[in-house]
Design a protein around this nucleic acid. Sequence first.
DNA 1: ATTAAATATTTATATATTTGCATTTGTAAT
DNA 2: ATTACAAATGCAAATATATAAATATTTAAT
Lengths: 100, 100
Amino acid sequence: MQFKELDADRLDTAANMLKAIAHPMRIAILKHLEGGKKLTVTQIHELLGIEQSTTSHHLGILKDKGVLCSRREGKNTFYYLKHDVLSQVVDCLERCTCGE
Amino acid sequence: MQFKELDADRLDTAANMLKAIAHPMRIAILKHLEGGKKLTVTQIHELLGIEQSTTSHHLGILKDKGVLCSRREGKNTFYYLKHDVLSQVVDCLERCTCGE
DNA sequence: ATTAAATATTTATATATTTGCATTTGTAAT
DNA sequence: ATTACAAATGCAAATATATAAATATTTAAT
């Protein structure tokens, strides 16, 4: 068992990570970042058609919870997946939401 | 691409499913149900040390969002994973929360 | 030093979630 | 029909989350 004894801290960490992902806009963001892609706040805000501040907020949550990383280059900040494995979470869901 | 056009309804469905899972107690529940195990409300409530009504509530959420199924047998109601694939979501998380 | 562009933060409001207690419903046995 | 156990529901208080408008910060160019 990888969660040693279902330790409360690890459950919290995992739950927070999942909670970060569990939002329609944030899933959409992850989908756009699959395969190691890197996008700026503005690009995402335009792709999704949501407010800049809202976009930044969502990205902040994903970064804070360890789902994304960011790297500033000049005026732009590029966001990208921290663990590419995380695409699997979304992919797994897709499989489950298909045949219903 | 499996989400056809990142369709809003599918994003919602996926988000709701993830939201259902994204809670420490509910992740703990899933861990106990891995491998096709079936447990009653009381068993889970005792395993986790939380209130019966709280347990039932969590199970209701997981069932409602398509994560669990239930089957009544006499006075007991057994809960179990609807898609065993879903263990992968938890497993994937474990992998991501290990080396940090 | 000004200006402009890209991000981030603050703030306020609306909405949703979590939890336990008390109650109710469902099922089986006497 | 009464009793007992299992599970679900209604409720209320505490807490958390989402959104957008306004503001602030960071960086680059002039």
